[in-house]
Nucleic acid binder design. Structure first.
Length: 426
RNA sequence: GGAGAGGUGGCAGAGCGGUUGAAUGCGUCGGUUUCGAAAACCGAUAUAGGUGAAAGCCUAUCGGGGGUUCGAAUCCCCCCCUCUCCGCCA
């Protein structure tokens, strides 16, 4: 959520920022509503102050055994009714204002390039080169089933389309990636590992911005009013909701492996072959809670952690700086990491690293007490490091051999009992 | 799932329906004292919002939401959470 007080004082800056995003926000409507709410609030509180004073007087008079108590009560009752009428009106308008604010996107940082959509994202960096093959490289949807490490048909049989299953060395390879990612983050990058619930409340989903705007992308357990997380960002960022963290403890950095559940409504048929886009996938996420002063630099550090993993896996990738028009709802700046999948002949997004500035903190009530003992909103950052199925795709397509076997990247071998090659018989 | 107990400020823990934002203790901060520290003593110590140039004033908040009342931390109803015991279960 944006800072309403800031909108009040600098509406033009917000207008410009939203226009750069291509977001239609009725600034005048918001400001008018805000004005009404505050006017009603002032009125209601003024009447309430009178009611309180009258009640206090009645209390004293009753104690002293005054005679005019009944008359005073009647007067106070009338005032109370008046207050209730005004306050009810205020409440309705305030709800309306809140609802409107909840679907307003975060303005991008000033140095985010302006653009209308994904076609105007900028390639900020490229690492490595596309692997060259002496044969025609195969896509994972051919390689995987041939090796017996992926099974799409049986997954569809038990769960419908958009689900995949791994088997044998494929399942093990996936687990090896998770372990290696987590170990790297905890031992080398200073993250604390978390294990969290995969079902969360609507309030939690609202804290990070999935609700109310993106309800159609979430799986919901209607009988219990719980939702399946679409990313570990949701439970991890909300973990400290409503709390006050001491500045000395910042930045708080967490890494967490969870499955992610996404309905992918409206994405049917778009890049859905094989493991590329599925309703359930595993991901290792990193989340930072940090100060406004540090957050921009911290975003680069976080992104570096994700990039490093791809480098050690020997995977060719590029960094995209998203333009204003392609930046997600709550994000103020996002870098996507796209890995090259030589078989599918495509760049696949395996990480999205973002700073949400204080947008999520305002929703989730995440604050810190500064060295000066003042309370301030935290800045939240997160990024995938990394998303499993697409890493797996790039990995096997990149490391495939002419005979259809897969060479295991050296960093993963300790996690596979020394296995250096996945073959159809493995 | 059944039975019971409980949810009050950073923490612990009081609180008759009436000038209670809330005793007391601890903690924290400032001061006195000290060569310095400890101890002791003195003082301060919530958050959010409205209004105002500011000082300030006002409103709200005792798990959440309703209700009774002129007035609710205190009474009533619903919900949530925690703990204990029983049952069930990976």
């Amino acid at each position: 959520m944006i800072d309403l007080a800031a909108l009040r004082t600098q509406p033009d800056a917000f207008r410009a920022a939203w226009s750069a995003r291509g977001a239609a926000v009725d600034v005048d409507g918001l400001l008018a509503l805000d004005q009404q709410v505050r006017a009603l609030k002032t009125r209601a509180e003024g009447i309430k102050a009178e009611v309180n004073a009258a009640s206090k007087a009645i209390g004293m008079a009753a104690k002293a055994g005054g005679a005019a108590v009944e008359e005073a009560k009647a007067k106070a009752r009338a005032l109370g009714d008046q207050h209730k009428a005004v306050d009810t009106e205020r409440e309705a308008l305030e709800k309306e204002l809140q609802a409107a604010l909840m679907v307003v996107p975060n303005p991008c940082l000033p140095d985010v390039p302006v653009g209308k959509d994904a076609s105007e994202n900028r390639v900020a960096a490229t690492w490595g080169t596309a692997p060259a093959f002496a044969f025609a490289p195969k896509a994972h949807w051919d390689l995987g089933p041939a090796l017996g490490i992926m099974d799409f048909e049986r997954a569809a049989k038990i769960s419908g389309s958009g689900f995949a299953s791994l088997r044998g060395a494929g399942a093990r390879l996936s687990r090896a990636l998770v372990s290696w990612f987590l170990d790297t983050h905890t031992t080398r990058n200073g993250y604390t590992e978390l294990a969290v619930p995969y079902l969360v409340t609507p309030k939690t989903m609202t804290g990070t911005g999935q609700l109310p705007k993106f309800a159609d992308q979430l799986y919901r357990c209607a009988d219990d009013d719980l939702l399946l997380i679409p990313t570990a960002e949701v439970p991890v960022t909300n973990l400290h909701a409503g709390e006050i963290i001491d500045e000395a403890a910042l930045p708080v950095r967490y890494t967490c492996h969870t499955p992610c559940f996404r309905r992918e409504a409206g994405a049917a048929g778009v890049g859905t072959r094989g493991l590329t886009r599925v309703h359930q996938f595993d991901k290792v996420e990193v989340v930072w809670l940090t100060t406004p002063e540090r957050s921009r630099a911290d975003l680069d550090t976080l992104r570096g952690h994700a990039e490093h993993l791809l480098q050690e896996l020997g995977l060719h990738y590029r960094v995209l700086q998203l333009c204003t028009g392609d930046t997600g709802f709550g994000s103020a700046m996002t870098f996507d990491l796209e890995v090259w999948a030589p078989g599918a002949n495509a760049w696949l997004e395996v990480s999205s690293c973002s700073t949400f500035t204080d947008f999520q903190s305002r929703r989730a009530d995440l604050r810190y007490r500064g060295a000066d003992s003042k309370l301030r909103l935290l800045h939240t950052l997160n990024g995938s490091a990394l998303a499993l199925p697409r890493c797996l795709i790039a990995l096997i397509e990149t490391w495939q051999q002419a005979d259809g076997s897969i060479t295991v990247p050296p960093v993963l071998r300790p996690y596979l009992g020394g296995l250096d090659r996945i073959t159809a018989t493995a």
